[in-house]
Design a protein around this nucleic acid. Sequence first.
RNA 1: GCAGCCGGCCGGAUGACCGCCGCUGCCGGUAACCGCGGGCAACCGCGAAGUGCCGGCAGGGGAGGAAAGUCCGAACUCCGCAGAGCAGUGCGCCGGGUAACACCCGGGCGGGGCAACCCGACGGAAAGUGGCACAGAAAAUAUACCGCCCGCCUUCGCCCUCGGCUCUCUGAGCCUCGGGCUUCGGCGGGGCAAGCCCAUGACAGGGGGCGCGCGCACGGAGCCGAGGGCUCCCGCGAGCGGCCCCCCUCUCAGGGUUUACCCCGCCGCAGCGCGGAGCCCGGAGGGCGGAGCGCGAAGGUGGGUAAGGGUGAAAUGGUGCGGUAAGAGCGCACCGCGCCGCUGGCAACAGCGGUGGCAGGCCAAACCCCGCACGGAGCAAGACCAAAUAGGGAGGCGAUUGGCGCCUCGGCGUCGCAAGACGCCGGGGACGGCCAGGGAGGGCGGCUCGCCCAAGGCUUCCGGGUAGGUUGCUCGAUCCCGUCAGCAAUGACGGGGCUAGAGGAAUGGUCAUCCCGCCGAAGCGCGCGGGCCGCAAGGCCCGCGUGCGAAGGCGGACAGAAUUCGGCUUACAGGCCGACUGCGGCG
RNA 2: GUCCCCGUCGUCCAGAGGCCCAGGACGCGGCCCUUUCAAGGCUGAAACACGGGUUCGAAUCCCGUCGGGGACG
Length: 134
Amino acid sequence: MGGAHAFRPAEHIRKRSDYTRIYDSGSKNHGRLMTVFVQASERPHARLGIAATRKLGPAVDRNRAKRRVRELFRHHKPDAGLDIVVVPRRELLDAPFASLEAEFRVLVERRGPRGAPRAPRHGRSSRPRAHSGV
RNA sequence: GCAGCCGGCCGGAUGACCGCCGCUGCCGGUAACCGCGGGCAACCGCGAAGUGCCGGCAGGGGAGGAAAGUCCGAACUCCGCAGAGCAGUGCGCCGGGUAACACCCGGGCGGGGCAACCCGACGGAAAGUGGCACAGAAAAUAUACCGCCCGCCUUCGCCCUCGGCUCUCUGAGCCUCGGGCUUCGGCGGGGCAAGCCCAUGACAGGGGGCGCGCGCACGGAGCCGAGGGCUCCCGCGAGCGGCCCCCCUCUCAGGGUUUACCCCGCCGCAGCGCGGAGCCCGGAGGGCGGAGCGCGAAGGUGGGUAAGGGUGAAAUGGUGCGGUAAGAGCGCACCGCGCCGCUGGCAACAGCGGUGGCAGGCCAAACCCCGCACGGAGCAAGACCAAAUAGGGAGGCGAUUGGCGCCUCGGCGUCGCAAGACGCCGGGGACGGCCAGGGAGGGCGGCUCGCCCAAGGCUUCCGGGUAGGUUGCUCGAUCCCGUCAGCAAUGACGGGGCUAGAGGAAUGGUCAUCCCGCCGAAGCGCGCGGGCCGCAAGGCCCGCGUGCGAAGGCGGACAGAAUUCGGCUUACAGGCCGACUGCGGCG
RNA sequence: GUCCCCGUCGUCCAGAGGCCCAGGACGCGGCCCUUUCAAGGCUGAAACACGGGUUCGAAUCCCGUCGGGGACG
């Protein structure tokens, strides 16, 4: 029943190779609370990966950051096939949830401004894949 | 009531919406490898299997006391291993508990606290090696040194001078007072190379603070003296000294301080007695006096001694009496220590008695010795399944000719004592080692021709094995309750329960209400002090402290399982329960 | 997760029970030299990660924290 806000295993990014691919050829946007990598994919649904490094804090803080980011993804899930990797910053831990939602929306959709979902730096052309939401 | 001490426990609650991960049941969809059968084959059917996977619904479960640090100990897994030892590491009072431990319990000993109680790496220093700065005679050998005592040897000044005495009298000798020289020692003052400190204010003095140290000292006066020490006074139930910081004299300074060295001044030391002969005077007798003797001092030397020696973190048992030439556990008493015996205790150890005569400093978290334990790695251990790509092995298909190279055998030649090496010729063999030819096949193409690529080909199987997946993975030295044994740790028995299993890693997100703590105006209560009124009881006002206190605000810790247990260590807001100790109050 | 290693001036090192209130080089401050700068000379400031313990005495030896780095078919 609850499918709209669910977060299924298929929506996790798990493989190391997926992460490196998104780091290399996805678009990258910095915010005050987090950094977001976005890359388009062939899948019918979006996927999420979280990279909480030890720099963020001890295990309690890292787990809390991941839970809040997952919650963001559940409530603001893009309908298109996008691979998203979020790198949380320390400021994310104490920020109000509403400010997280605002920043997450902006960072995910900002991938547009400098052209379609495309690797800005590595120029390895991924063909323009019309996405309505920009 | 306050302060303390020990043990145990909890570690926010409830609800709403949206979610996550296992398990169980039901419902819907749906495979594959593989096996069997059929078919020329593509493939089909059956089994595997309605399993696994995907989705839905329902039920039930889902972080900790430290999950942390990874400091110990184990289980488990793989590797290694005849046995024993060495090395290395860890542990170290005794007894018990345990699967094991560096953990726990009980006891002993030592230390701290008024006490409850707390703390302790707590074997061995006559097995050996080594270290102990500075100071000090000496830092481990009980010797040397200083000193004390005994014996022996040598020596016991010089110059000037007041005064005196004697004589053989412009002089000589002797005694005495004072001074000087020389040598040594002590005390005081001054100078100053150099070092250090100081405008961030030195130094000195005074006051205050803090911690550490010593403890009847500090200060004052005197005495003995070889080293070095002793006595008295003041003070006295507590202080004193050193270091550091702050303040004041003080915005005062080219100054202060220490040691070495130099100079100056002061003090101290440098024989006395008896005495035959002799000489002189003489009444007795007296004076001088060589040698000698005794005592004393200085130096040297031979011995005795371990009492004492400013030091130091530490000094060779302590105190007292006797004893001695001086001394000494040399003797005695007490204390300490070692050994032996008895008693109590399983033991560590304790008590008592006897005995020895001191038997030898500290450091083993210095090397080490003794006793005990330990094979190594770690769930990224290990096991199973197994893409793509590359590579390995075996087979099949296709072309299989020549040359070079390779292997082997034979002959000849050169070198060599030989073994053998090198070269040439010939026979045989293998080969995807190289080159050329050949061309199965492939590409362009509807087909042929043609062109291009081309033995680094196509294909089957096998083994290792990467990504990935499955497993190991949660029923266990398990948890709860009770009984029994035990002082306890713990164990035995009985009953009951199943209590997270993720894997880029779940156990939550957002909000509401409540709970707890802190702040908190007005107001109220209590205590203390002051003022006013009142004869008094008391009342009023002011100030301070304290308790209760609405709305509201702030806060609710430390921290997230990763193979699993037993410990240790570290972090932690707030709260609850119980035992005990000290002090105060009331009865 | 499992297992190792290391912490000394601002930086890189030395020191290995007392000679160390810790030494050297570079860097930093001041003075001298120079017309000036550099070089050179003189000089100064500056550190034992933290907390306990052993010892007469600890940067050094032991224990525990904290921080940093590394390895993992």
